[in-house]
Design a protein around this nucleic acid. Structure first.
Lengths: 199, 199
DNA sequence: GCGTGACACGAACGGTCGTGCTATTTTTTT
DNA sequence: AAAAAAATAGCACGACCGTTCGTGTCACGC
């Protein structure tokens, strides 16, 4: 890898960390440059604009998410175990791996009202995440762990709801209490998904 | 009411609207002054600092929340009807009454990582909101609508989770779809809360 | 050895931010 | 109606923002 590509990757890695802490909007070129140990303009040369930087940060975060959450979860046996591991890893991702919180959640808060390419890019990523959850739930149906008439889209929505709120809650009311609540809610959700349909 | 108090109230009213759109952090004195039709310094004189303004905005939002959500909900019959109405009103509050979203949710996103009096103030308000939900659920237990062993704190947590994610989701994926998802999740939650405990 | 291109730097631009200061106008009180 | 008090405007500040520009510094092909 060329020198340019290398520093570019290094910048993006720090940028993901920083985004996790201050959001995609709060990400400032100056602060990021300081953290990367280089000048503003030197950094800026790697990205045509802040907007492009933001888009690339989303991609970099997605790559990291695959490495840290998706891939390990998919090494778990198909079905319920995989769903459960996915949830645990996701909570860990949003509170430990990136101590400032999931960059996607932060970005969603920042850009839900703004129009433009960054928002569009974000939506694609979020949609992708939800699809992955739905896919994992579908496998649990195929394995006979979840009931066959389960709405996997709805399952993904509620899964995402728990992940998002877990972050808010753990930041504001403390990690242990948040974990308890999130696990209890998830268990209830899984129990419902396992239940045979009432005839 | 003196002239000063009056304009102060008017400022805060617009400030709540603005906060709903840009968050408590993104709330800027200059923009707010423009919207209130006065100068920056003229507005600024009403509040010693931006921090005080932010704290007052939270209080003003809470007052408005009581008028628009809590009070109407509590005019509903005790128990399940009241819980359901509370949920509907809350969703409405976060997407229609304040088109930019619930100021508390916005504030939570902005201040979950920042320390200081504003964050402390926010936590008090959020804790209060959760307590109100728990209280409403407790009444539903007393009325025999919800099962007696229901964890009302947990119920409040999941209730809040649905409200928060409903806003993100409706902004990013559209209001109708978000409403469907939120209602389905809420119904599932209520069904579970009604179910008699398994012996 | 020279030219060339990739890479990083410092300085500066126009803009907005929160925050003070000093007048001036408006309201309230006497 | 005059005096006191309150409310608002005007202006300037330092800090930070994204962005641009000119310059310097290497490594490499000729």
């Amino acid at each position: 890898m060329s020198k340019g590509r290398e520093t570019r990757q290094a910048i993006l890695y720090r940028a993901v960390d920083l985004t996790s802490q201050v959001g995609l909007e709060g990400l400032s070129i100056g602060v990021l440059a300081k953290r990367a140990g280089m000048s503003k303009s030197g950094l800026y040369a790697h990205f045509g604009s802040k907007e492009e930087l933001q888009r690339e940060v989303l991609d970099a975060a997605a790559d990291r998410f695959v490495d840290v959450v998706m891939a390990p979860a998919f090494r778990e046996p198909r079905g319920l175990p995989r769903v459960e591991r996915l949830f645990e890893l996701w909570m860990w991702w949003g509170t430990q791996e990136l101590s400032g919180g999931c960059p996607f959640v932060a970005a969603a808060s920042d850009f839900e009202d703004r129009l433009g390419p960054v928002r569009d890019h974000l939506i694609v990523h979020l949609d992708d995440l939800l699809k992955e959850v739905a896919k994992t739930a579908q496998i649990a149906i195929d394995e006979g762990h979840f009931r066959p008439d389960l709405d996997v889209q709805q399952f993904a929505y509620e899964f995402w709801a728990l992940v998002v709120v877990h972050q808010h809650y753990s930041k504001l009311f403390g990690y242990p209490r948040a974990n308890e609540r999130a696990r209890a809610a998830f268990e209830r959700m899984v129990r419902d998904a396992c239940q045979a349909p009432v005839h």
